[in-house]
Design a protein around this nucleic acid. Structure first.
Lengths: 203, 203
DNA sequence: AACGATACGGAACAAGGTTCCGCTTAGCAA
DNA sequence: TTGCTAAGCGGAACCTTGTTCCGTATCGTT
């Protein structure tokens, strides 16, 4: 996203210290997110990075911008895994379960991310725009393939499914006896047209 | 919960103004919850009730205590509906879907309640203790009946299912294109051992 | 070396939760 | 009826966290 240089008369390339700070902030934020979830206090992140709070707002106007920047690589990896999984599995449904696995892994290891993704608060508009725009089409492609093969019902949209999965992942780390994966598996089982094809056990 | 009088040497019966205030607070809180969700600012509730903030804390030490008190009646009604539904439906699975419907209705009409129920934050311990202690056994009974009849898989516990449903209901009112009920239906479909028995359409 | 634009830090402000403390008043007894 | 005491009350004060503002420092260029 940040242009290295490139196009004709794009952004005039930021000052060196600004670029340095942005990088430092990303690392500090990543650390803070691991320690306290994505709701880590702005001051904490600023302190970790050794900058003032205003610097954070200057680089990342909303928390969502920061979150997006921190997790962009992982979202990208998840998105790219979709076509790959489709290619390497004969059954699109198998690819779907594997891909959803990746998505769940991503969500549950980032404390608070599922919650933010679920929320519709204006602050997270950026986060929605990026995460969903990037991942929904991937999910839709897998769903469509499975639908064509008659493996699953076709009356569910990708966004809807991902919202559901995201909701189930909220709070995954809050209780030892809440296993988001089992419930997601149940949800996916609900998609099947002929469930006797698959093992009926829940993980 | 508040003893009218009763037992031998129990709580020494609060002062009249205290009892009056408690009632006023419950009404004010109910109104505030409808207007702003269960996260309504303490000051708002206090203003509505015409009391100071400390009075709220005195009667309801945590927000969860207040929430529980406000919704106790409705939780009770939901709990009592369980056995009734089982009795009036031949298929326990049908009773299950109806009962879950009631539960979902309850959650989605109380902004923020599902979220609180899902959360494991220490503050909501009281809320968990009451809501879940009261409703989980009811759900368990219906699940067991459906399991005995071979309608659903038996490897899912009531608490687990209710957590899942609760999670799906979080954010039900946040997006016009998020329909918690459809997803809950999908989750319940995932429970079925022989889904071809039921209509495969999602509401 | 100097200058203008960019970026910075931290104080200041806002909003919400929680606690503290001096005052009020219900309930009881003389 | 009048006093007394403890339960109860109100709201100011305090803490935490997000957000903005502004005087100052620094970069990059001339």
């Amino acid at each position: 996203m940040t242009e290295i240089d490139g196009g004709p008369a794009t952004a005039p390339r930021k000052r060196a210290d600004a670029r340095r700070n942005e990088q430092t902030l990303l690392e500090a934020a990543a650390a803070a997110f691991v320690a306290s979830g994505i709701d880590a206090p702005v001051r904490d992140i600023a302190t970790r990075a050794g900058v003032g709070v205003a610097t954070i707002y200057r680089h990342f106007p909303t928390r969502a911008d920061l979150v997006v920047a921190v997790y962009r690589h992982q979202v990208e990896a998840c998105a790219e895994a979709g076509p790959a999984l489709l290619a390497e599995h004969d059954s699109p449904y198998a690819a779907l379960t594997r891909w959803i696995d990746l998505f769940v892994d991503f969500l549950v290891t980032k404390h608070g991310l599922a919650e933010a993704l679920r929320s519709n608060a204006a602050e997270f508009a950026t986060l929605h725009a990026y995460f969903l725009d990037r991942l929904v089409p991937v999910c839709a492609e897998i769903l469509a393939a499975a639908g064509r093969d008659g493996e699953i019902r076709t009356d569910i949209r990708a966004l809807e499914l991902m919202r559901g999965v995201g909701s189930l992942c909220v709070g995954a780390n809050q209780s030892p006896d809440y296993d988001a994966r089992r419930l997601v598996a149940l949800l996916l089982a609900g998609l099947r047209l002929n469930p006797s094809d698959t093992a009926p056990t829940l993980a």
